[in-house]
Nucleic acid binder design. Structure first.
Lengths: 194, 194
DNA sequence: GTCTATATGAAGATAGAC
DNA sequence: GTCTATCTTCATATAGAC
């Protein structure tokens, strides 16, 4: 944050609290479905006070996306540390779907849903949200390259990303964990056969 | 429309015009992103006048969904007439993705995007939008049964539906027809191998 | 069935005392 | 950095003359 001159310890905490609450609300209710009042209430700050930290709602979204980027980067580093084998790493990605079953069924994929929403309502902001997809596309492509699939790495990454998005959407629409589990099994077999 | 006592020829036309314009706007901008003013302007009727035809915006959405159901049913009937072979029919479904390339890249899948939006913002209305998915799931499952895959017909239908949704979302987010084309090629091979 | 005027409420945003 | 009061805008929705 180079353009934020200085902020007290308390200020940083409040700011972080606002972002965390907004992230949760944006995920569960969508960006358009979340009002300033909702965020203010969840974060326990006063109405006008939020403007001390963010000039606009869009700015909050940018901060939320930046936070998600950090979270996912940390997750990918963890996968890399635990699994030296690229195929095992790809499997981790697939297993994430199973691990997040509950949230996926209830609210859909946190990356896919925000991109879908912004793609229609706010194409200007969708450019920022796309970074979350880029993050996984690049990481997956790296694993495919490590598997000796240089030529198709990008396509394979998009393929796997698409499969994950497709099953997340269907499972969410039907509120059905079984649909998710069956597709995850298919994806495990797909990774295994690589 | 059993509860609509009677409506003049002109009235029916105006009503149909409102629904058609709303369908287009809901698809391109989303339900929440489309205001009454937008619909009124596109349909060329006067502001307060629209309430003569629909009591609420939600009612317009229901009418739009009903119209889409009719459209898709007609499409499926056409596929059935042109293709006696179930595998050829499944291929038609896949080819639809290629045929709609332009719209899919620009606005995403008309079924998936409305369900994704309503799933967060208006779960009450999402129940109606899900009927569009049911329509394709059932039609696809019927083809798989005809192929002698009774036991897996439902799973296979969800699988294909998910693949179509996944690629639509990715292609939309990246505004990239090439992603769509590559995945469609993969799906053609998948259907071929059935 | 057509058209104008307006009510009502919610949301984003601001001002300014403390 | 905290808190209250308020402004503006835009959305859905309604009333009622013609």
């Amino acid at each position: 944050m180079p353009d934020k001159p200085a902020m007290s310890r308390k200020g940083e905490q409040t700011r972080a609290e606002i972002i965390a609450c907004a992230q949760d609300l944006f995920y569960r209710r969508g960006y358009g479905g979340t009002s300033f009042s909702d965020i203010v209430e969840a974060a326990g700050v006063y109405r006008g006070n939020i403007y001390h930290y963010f000039k606009t709602k869009d700015e909050i979204l940018e901060a939320v996306i930046a936070r998600r980027v950090q979270e996912f980067r940390a997750l990918q580093r963890e996968w890399e540390e635990r699994c030296p084998d690229p195929k095992q790493r790809l499997m981790r990605f697939v297993e994430m779907l199973a691990a997040c079953e509950d949230d996926l069924v209830r609210f859909g994929c946190p990356i896919g849903t925000i991109n879908a929403e912004l793609g229609k309502a706010r194409r200007d902001l969708q450019g920022s949200a796309k970074a979350l997809f880029d993050l996984f596309r690049d990481w997956l492509a790296t694993q495919f390259v490590a598997l000796g699939r240089e030529a198709q790495a990008q396509s394979l990454a998009f393929h796997l990303l698409g499969r994950a998005q497709g099953v997340s959407l269907i499972a969410h629409v039907y509120h059905d964990p079984a649909v998710l589990q069956r597709e995850v099994a298919t994806l495990r077999a797909w990774v295994d056969a690589l």
